[in-house]
């Protein structure tokens, strides 16, 4: 249960960071923290071995899912950082509260 609790706490810390941080890099880092928390939850829940057979019932399948999650996360980080560089070059802005043109 420790692993699941840690992953839930990490996810919630990431949520707090996404909601409060004002710099784009900080928001992206908080999203990384959230995704790491969810991956940790998956691995922690699948880590227990079956008491009879001694094999992990979900192990390989969960590992494949987490591997695909890592791919999606890497793509998201790359696109997000490219957007950050582009916005900073054209507007000279690195904080999200300075970008309010499309605010509804």
């Amino acid at each position: 249960m420790i692993g699941v609790l840690v992953s839930v706490a990490v996810f919630c810390i990431g949520v707090y960071g996404v909601l409060t941080r004002r710099d784009i890099v900080g928001v992206l880092a908080s999203i990384e923290v959230m995704l790491a928390g969810s991956m940790l939850a998956l691995v922690a829940m699948a880590s227990g071995a079956d008491s009879v057979t001694g094999v992990r019932p979900l192990g390989q399948s969960i590992e494949a899912v987490v591997l695909l999650l890592m791919v999606i996360d890497a793509a998201e980080a790359a696109v997000g950082l490219a957007l950050l560089v582009s916005v900073a070059r054209r507007r000279g802005v690195t904080r999200i509260d300075e970008l309010q043109e499309v605010k509804g």
Partner: peptide, 23 residues
């Protein structure tokens, strides 16, 4: 969110025994 997720995950039995078999 933390309280909600913790309550929701109460039923999840994490059977980590300290010796997870290597994948």
């Amino acid at each position: 969110l933390f309280v909600m997720l913790t309550v929701a995950l109460q039923g999840v039995s994490n059977r980590f025994t300290g010796s997870a078999p290597e994948s």
